[in-house]
Design a protein around this nucleic acid. Structure first.
Lengths: 191, 191
DNA sequence: TCGATATAGAACATAATGTTCTGTAAATAT
DNA sequence: ATATTTACAGAACATTATGTTCTATATCGA
C-alpha cells in the first residue's frame, strides 16, 4: 500500500479514536475528523464513503490486532472444567483491551461504545463458534448457537461492567469472574 | 394532559415506530417523522427537543408497559433452583415483547436495535438489582452487581438471538433456554 | 527521471436541522 | 355558553453538515 495512503489512514483513525472518547459517534462531523487528522475533505471521502465505513474498518482493525496474538487454546476440550487455556486466553484479551495504545476502553465507555460492542459481539460469535463446535456438547437440548451467543454476550457484558466500574479489577480477576459464570454452563453437557 | 398533546404524541410514536422497522435510527429524518405522523414541524420540536429524546421517551414507555403487569416473583428466593416464578415471569415478558402492538421486536431487529437494547439493559439492571439483593448470595466472592449485570446481559443476548433467528421458538422454550444458562450460576452460592 | 496517483483546497449543490413568525382550531375554566 | 388559554399548522428562514467536482501540487513506485 502506498505510504501516503497508510499515513492518512492512520491519521484519520487516530483522530477518530480521539474524538470518540470525547463525544458520541453521531455527533462527530466529518469536518472535525479531517481537521483533527489534518487531511483534505476529498481525501477523507476517497478512503471512506461514509462515517459508518470508517467505524466499521477501524473496529475490524482493532479486533484483528487484539485477537491476533491471543494464545489459542490447544486443547479445545479445555473450554470446560475451569479450563486453564481459556482463562489465560481471556486474560490476554483483557490486557490487550486495557493497555491498547488506541485507548479502546476509552472508546467503549463513550456514548458510542454500544456500536463498537455490536461489532465485537459479531466477531466473537464467529470465532467462538469455530472453537467450541468440537469441544462442547449442548446441554439439555439447548441449541449450540444459542450457547455460543450466550458466551459471547457474557464476555461483552463483562467488559461493559468492567469499563463502567472504572477498571478497578485486574484482568486476572475479571477472567476468574468470567469463568465462574460461564464454566458451570459449559460443564453440564460435556464429559 | 391535554387530549391534543396525547394525540400528537401517539401519532409521533406510531410513525416513529413504523419508520424504525424500515430504516436505521440515524437515517430517519425529522421531516419523515412529521410527514408520517401528519403533524407540523413546530409541533414536533415542542414535544421532543431532539430525535434522541424521542427514542428515549418511547423506550421508557414501552418498557414500562412490558414490565408493568409482569407477575412478580412472590418468593424472591425462588430465583434459583429452577424457580418457577422466574420462569413464568420471563415467559410473560417474552410474550409481551413478541405480541406487542408496537412491533417492538421489529424495532429490535433493525439497525437501531442496539440503541434500544442499551436502554433495556439499564432498565433490567435496575429492576433486577432490587429483586435479587435479598434472594441470592454471591458465589465465589464474585461481586453482586457483576452477577446482576451478567443476568441482564444474558437476557439481552437471548432476545437478540431469538430475534435474529426469526422467533422460531416459543416464549416458553426461550425461557427454558434462559433458565438453563442462568440457573446454574445462581444456585451455586445460594442455599 | 518519469508517469501514475494521492492529496490539498476551494467552490459548489443538496439536504437536514432547529427557530421564528402568524393565524387558526380546540381544549379547559368560569 | 362564553371567554381564555393553549396547542397546532404552515411557511419562511438562517445555519450547518454532507458529498461532489474541479484544478494544481506533491509524493510515490518503477
Amino acid at each position: 500500500m502506498d505510504r501516503r495512503q497508510q499515513k492518512t489512514r492512520d491519521a484519520i483513525f487516530d483522530a477518530f479514536g480521539m474524538l470518540l472518547t470525547e463525544k458520541s459517534f453521531s455527533k462527530i462531523t466529518v469536518q472535525e475528523i479531517i481537521d483533527a487528522a489534518n487531511v483534505g475533505r476529498t481525501t477523507f471521502y476517497a478512503h471512506f464513503p461514509t462515517k459508518d465505513d470508517l467505524l466499521r474498518e477501524m473496529c475490524a482493525e482493532i479486533f484483528d490486532h487484539v485477537f491476533s496474538d491471543a494464545p489459542r487454546a490447544e486443547n479445545t476440550h479445555d473450554f470446560s472444567a475451569n479450563g486453564r487455556d481459556t482463562t489465560t486466553a481471556v486474560t490476554h484479551v483483557l490486557y490487550h483491551l486495557r493497555d491498547s495504545r488506541k485507548n479502546i476502553l476509552g472508546i467503549l465507555s463513550s456514548e458510542s461504545g454500544d456500536l463498537l460492542l455490536t461489532f465485537f459481539r459479531q466477531y466473537l460469535n464467529k470465532s467462538l463458534a469455530m472453537r467450541m463446535l468440537d469441544g462442547v456438547r449442548p446441554a439439555d437440548s439447548v441449541p449450540m448457537d444459542f450457547l455460543v451467543n450466550h458466551i459471547s454476550g457474557s464476555f461483552i457484558s463483562m467488559v461493559q461492567w468492567w469499563v463502567e466500574n472504572g477498571l478497578r479489577e485486574t484482568p486476572e480477576e475479571m477472567a476468574r469472574y468470567f469463568m465462574s459464570v460461564t464454566d458451570p454452563i459449559l460443564s453440564v453437557g460435556n464429559m
